Simulated assay, not measured.
Amino acid sequence: MNAALSDVRLLTGWLDAPSELGAFTAKYPEAGGVVSFLGQVRAGDGVEALELRHYAPLTLPAMKELAARVRERWTLAGLLIVHRSGMMVPGEPIVLVAAAARHRRDAFAAADYAMDHLKSESWFWKREKAKGEWHWIEPREQDISDLARWA
């Protein structure tokens, strides 16, 4: 395992992605590249809200275990995974993943792997309110095939 530092958090409030990414990038001036992904609540299709629920004793430990797997696979200077739970509206951030590495390929792959696993291993239960009605969101076939490519 490489000695990359991980910052893994679960939030119930606002995620200030620009500040988080700025602070993360400033910690790793030796990194030749920082790759980030920001997931947000999609607007359109009548979506009014998104709610993410989770089982507290499992979620954060599982996210930290994912970070450890990422650090074992790629040579990183640092890794950031910040995920929200609770109610959100279109345009609000849900998740921020960033990887800092000496070389860009490690940063890209690490961030991609982390997001595929966050999305598909699903320690979160998601439901969406659209056109006044709530419905649960299940993983899509694309999510499952995205995850399978890392096997």
Rank of each mutant, 00 (worst) to 15 (best):
M63I: 02
P139T: 01
G32K: 13
G33L: 15
I144A: 13
H54K: 02
W125D: 04
D116R: 00
R84W: 01
K131F: 13
L50G: 07
A4Y: 06
H83M: 12
Y28N: 01
A17S: 10
K64S: 01
F124R: 04
K126D: 02
H117C: 06
V41E: 09
H135I: 04
V47Q: 14
P93C: 07
L21Y: 14
A31T: 02
D45E: 13
E20K: 04
L21V: 11
A56V: 13
M63C: 10
A130W: 04
A99E: 00
V82E: 05
P57L: 04
P57T: 05
I144L: 15
Q40K: 10
H117P: 02
T59L: 05
H103E: 12
V35H: 12
R69G: 06
L21K: 10
D7M: 11
S122C: 10
L15K: 09
S120Q: 06
R69Q: 09
P29E: 09
P57I: 05
M1K: 13
M1V: 08
V89R: 14
E48T: 11
N2S: 14
G13T: 13
G86R: 03
E92G: 00
A62Y: 05
R71W: 00
Y28G: 13
P29M: 10
L15R: 09
E128V: 15
R53V: 11
H83G: 01
E141S: 13
G78F: 05
E51G: 11
A4G: 10
V47L: 02
E138L: 07
E48H: 08
M88Q: 08
R127L: 01
M88S: 14
L118N: 00
H103Y: 00
N2W: 12
P18Q: 12
M88V: 14
P61K: 03
H117S: 06
L76S: 03
V70L: 01
I144M: 12
K131E: 09
R140Q: 13
W123E: 07
A49L: 01
N2I: 03
A101P: 06
A23D: 07
E48P: 10
W150P: 06
K126I: 08
L76Y: 02
Q40R: 10
S6C: 15
D106I: 00
G33W: 12
A114S: 04
F124C: 01
Y113S: 05
Q40M: 15
E72W: 12
H135F: 14
L96P: 06
W74H: 08
L5K: 14
S145M: 10
G32P: 07
F37E: 03
W150M: 05
Q142W: 03
L5E: 12
M87L: 15
L76P: 05
L10R: 11
F108R: 02
P57E: 06
A31H: 09
V82A: 07
E30A: 15
E128S: 09
W125L: 10
A101L: 06
G86I: 14
D116N: 04
Q142T: 14
L38E: 11
T59P: 04
T59R: 03
A26M: 10
E138W: 07
M87Q: 09
R71Y: 00
M115F: 08
M63W: 01
L147E: 11
H54I: 04
L79F: 04
A67I: 07
